[in-house]
Every structure is written in C-alpha cells, then in structure tokens.
Design a protein around this nucleic acid. Structure first.
Length: 409
DNA sequence: TCTGGGGTCCTGCCTCGT
DNA sequence: TCTGACGAGGCAGGACCC
C-alpha cells in the first residue's frame, strides 16, 4: 500500500519507519542468490525459533517466534539461515544515519524500526508525507533494502499505519481521519494488547477499537487491569502524548541461554551462571554502569519458570560478585529437576563509582537543574547537585553523570 | 508441536519502619 | 510497651514488545 507524496497529511508530524523482513533482507543483500527464496532466519538445529522470515516464507504461514521445526513443516522447501546479528547492527547504523540526515529527532525502537519527529524540518524537506517518500527512496538506493513508513499525528497511529503499509509501502493518516482509521480495527492492533488481554477483552464482547471507546471504564478495568485499560482508552481515542525520545537509557542488562538438551548437572549449571555473569559484568563495565540487584531466571523442562533476585549490599560491576550472587540465588531453588534455560540479569543500574549526580552549568536555567535532579532521583534514588566545569554538547539533557566524566568542582 | 534472547512494565504479596 | 494502619521497597510472576 502506497499513499502518494501529496496525500493529505495535515496535522501529522510523526513517522514510523519499519524495515521489511529486515534480517532476511540483509541476508539477501549479502547473498543475492537467496533472492526470491523462502528464507527462515534461525538456527537449523537445537531449539531455535524463527527470528525473521522472508515474505516468500510468510506465505506458507511462517511467523517470527515460531519454532524452526514447525516452520519447516509449514514450508519444507525453506532455506534456514543462521542469524548474523553484528551484520544487522551494521546495516541498522546505515539506515539510522539516513533518518538522522533528515531530522535529529530519531528514536530507534530496535535494529529495524524507529520513530521520527519531522515537525521542525518541514521547511527544509517538505511535508511529512514527502519526507517519508524521500526516506523510502534513499534507504532503497543507498542500502539496497525496502522499508515501510506510517505517517500520523501520534506514535501509536504511525506505527499502526506502517504495519498496514507493509511491505514496501507507506500510509498517511491525517489527524482529522485518526478516529475513523482506528474505529474498525481489532483490539489486538493496540500497543500492549497481546493474546491474553485480547482474550479477556473479546470474552466481554470488546473486539474493535470502537468497542473500547464505547465500553465503561470499570468493565475495561476488570478485563485488563487499571493501568492498561487507562492506556487503551487513550489510544482508542487517538490520544498519545508520548514524544519522540532520542535518549532512552537501558534499565537492565542480562543474558540467558537455552540448552540443546535439558541439564540436571548442578556443577555444570553453576558454571553456566558464572559464564553468563561474566558476560553481564563485561557489558556493565563497558557501559560504565554498576548494578545493585542481581536476578536469575531458571526454566525447567516442563517450561515452568522461576525468577530469584537479590539486592546487593554494595553495587558492583565485578563479574565474580555478580556470579556469586547468581549462584547463591540458584541454591535457594529447591526443585532439582532438569533445566532447559538459565539467565542472569543486572537490574537497578547506576553510574559506576557511586555518584548519582545532577550536574549544572553556571549559566543554566534552574528549572533545568530541577529536571536533572528529578531524573537522577527517579533513576538512582538519590541525587547530588554539583556545578560542572564543563559539560560537553550532546551528552544528554539533565542526565545523571559521574563526576569523573566532567571534572566537577 | 514445542515454545529464543533481548528487554520493559505491571500486579500482587510480603516485610519493615514509622 | 503494645498494637494497628499505612507507605515504601523488595521480590516473584507474568504479559508484552521486537
């Protein structure tokens, strides 16, 4: 589906750009002999699931997150290609650079999609619909793969539009058309409605977004809980005040691994926890973070999953201490059955070295300082206000930072 | 049939301090 | 000194997203 560049885009400012079957497209880019074939990106053996599938494979019912074995039963002629994540990252950087050449307000959601706010660059590039067209052309010409774009007044509607536009399409929803666009669509199309929430809503006769608008709040609360129901009502009304956020920070870092076969050997499992802790610690140190909460995840052969977490007496980025905590948590689990997955995660991150600081400059507006303090407290539970000798450009608005980074007085 | 790995967010329960 | 109410925070589980 392709809206024209002169489609009515009045009241729009948000673009959602989504690469089409991204992993499969990159594999075709690197090996043109794969073009036109049904492709499944995933490990051919073990317990892998489909990470991505070409549109040729999707025609057979192959979907992401489906076990590869099941996908091969649906599409026996498919080629299974192991994923090359570092290569996807590399192509992703190329694509994001194109987005950023149009507007600095780019919020990557994952390797293959991003929100763009183009309100401020209309005089430079033209209307949002025209910018969407230009982006599609440049991604195709410079990277060699296709993308789909949704253009709308809010993030949520832009994302819905890009989904409908797929593959290799573009859909523009003028602000005045938002409610009509939303009304007949399934509740499943709303952000945050997965299989469980959809089942609960449909059991109450709530099937479309129009139904959500017409259902009393108490009924929705009972169906999906107060937090989600409040969000759904807003989205169903076309209200979504979320701005394009260019500075999202990760809140946890973890690694997990599913074994080819279930494992009961405790020593082996303890060693695996140490190995995963080592990877987590290395990532923390690279990012300059410490963790104050370590959690482990254990999934048994029957798929029952348990989590155990512990708040540390001292925050750390030392792999050995994370590993000791992980092993200690593992010993708290009484069940001794074979295990299919173990994971280690570092939560409640803060800058390494201990100081959660809200920095401010001589000439900065005090309201900005207040914002920085709020943010530091929200993230780290504490904030120290310090005057910085120098804060470089582009290092983050009101971000909490460690004194060593800035030469604080 | 057989369910990855990386995350975020919400809910409910429990404990602890005031 | 004891007791109950209440809020904050830790912890566990689960839904959801890509």
């Amino acid at each position: 589906m392709v809206s024209s560049a002169d489609a009515d885009d009045s009241g729009t400012r948000i673009l959602h750009v989504d690469m089409d079957a991204f992993y499969a497209a990159v594999e075709v880019l690197d090996d043109p002999s794969l073009r036109g074939l049904p492709l499944i990106i995933g490990s051919p053996d073990g317990r892998s699931v489909v990470s991505s599938a070409s549109y040729e494979a999707r025609r057979y019912g192959v979907r992401s997150a489906m076990p590869v074995s099941q996908a091969l039963r649906l599409c026996p002629g498919a080629r299974v290609v192991p994923p090359h994540f570092s290569r996807y990252q590399e192509v992703s950087r190329q694509v994001m650079a194109i987005f950023e050449s149009f507007t600095p307000l780019v919020e990557p959601l994952s390797v293959d999609e991003a929100f763009l706010d183009v309100q401020g660059v209309r005089r430079l590039w033209g209307s949002p619909a025209r910018i969407a067209g230009l982006i599609r052309e440049r991604v195709q010409a410079e990277v060699g793969i296709t993308c789909s774009v949704g253009v709308a007044s809010t993030k949520h509607v832009a994302k819905m539009a890009s989904t409908i536009a797929k593959p290799d399409g573009m859909l523009v929803i003028a602000a005045a058309d938002t409610l009509d666009f939303l009304a007949p669509r399934s509740v499943r199309a709303l952000w945050g409605v997965g299989p469980k929430a959809a089942e609960s809503l449909e059991a109450r006769g709530i099937r479309t977004i129009r139904d959500i608008r017409e259902t009393p709040q108490e009924t929705l609360d009972r169906a999906v809980g107060p937090a989600l129901s409040a969000r759904l009502v807003q989205l169903a009304r076309g209200e979504d005040a979320r701005a394009v956020d260019t500075e999202r920070v990760e809140k946890s870092i973890g690694h997990e691994e599913t074994f080819d076969q279930d494992i009961a050997d405790r020593e082996f499992l303890r060693a695996e926890l140490l190995r995963l802790s080592d990877r987590v610690g290395a990532r923390l140190r690279r990012a300059g973070w410490e963790t104050s909460t370590v959690s482990i995840k254990i999934r048994f052969a029957d798929f029952r999953t348990v989590n155990r977490s512990q708040t540390l007496t001292e925050p750390t980025a030392v792999s050995q201490r994370i590993g000791e905590a992980a092993q200690g948590l593992f010993e708290l689990i009484d069940r001794r059955d074979p295990i299919r997955l173990v994971g280690v995660r570092a939560e409640k991150l803060r800058p390494a070295g201990g100081g959660a600081l809200a920095l401010w400059d001589e000439d900065e507006d005090w309201r900005k300082v207040e914002g920085a303090v709020d943010e530091a407290i929200a993230r780290f539970g504490t904030a120290t206000i310090s005057r910085a000798r120098h804060i470089g450009r582009g290092e983050g608005r009101g971000a909490a930072r460690h004194p060593k980074d800035h030469g604080v007085d």
